[in-house]
Amino acid sequence: MNPAIQAILFYVFAFGALLSALGVVALRNPVSSALSLACCLAFVAAIFFGAGATFLGIAQLIIYAGAILVLILFIVMMLNVKDEQPAAGHWCYCIVGVVIAGMMAGTISSAALRLPGATGGRCPVHVLIEHANELCPVSGEEQATQPQTPPAEYGGMLPSISMKDHESDVSLLGKRLFTHYNMSIVILSFALLAGALGAVAVGRKLRRD
């Protein structure tokens, strides 16, 4: 795809995602908030597609916008939640929330603009890898195995994603997931099982005795 079109699409999707995220916070009705969240997650999935993470984008659409949002909507409708009425003294919380959120945004943004190597227009991770020897010295054997990679641009363009014919995003991600992170995914499955059991245990009716 044309890089200029990709950049324009990123800004359009980012604007849409931020707008619908504001909708989640600002809308009174929880159902409108949930639908706005679905919009926001779909926009973020589109940004994932643009960044070349196709599998993550599809997983985002299916897991978040499909499963989790439907579950939340189900609970909202089951509990028959009313619109939030503005209470006395609520503006105080609003001011505190806006101030803390603004400080957080400013801090992270300024950190993103001042990351190591940002002034040289290089990817901060690459700079950290290059200077790893000064930070924690390694033996010569380990040093030889470290990949020598050219630094990517930080202030400039991101490297474009171009898969070879016989490789796809899903197969590469799956290879990484089921070889290097095999044990982690087993532990993760236990965490999911614990979550399901916990949900059942918390959700069952309490006996009054």
């Binding site: 990709q6 990123f10 980012a14 931020l18 940002a118 930080y154 202030g155 991101l158 474009s160």
Partner: peptide
């Protein structure tokens, strides 16, 4: 194409 910093700020 978009620089990394714009993704991070978003």
């Amino acid at each position: 194409m978009t620089p990394l910093s714009h993704y991070l700020i978003f």
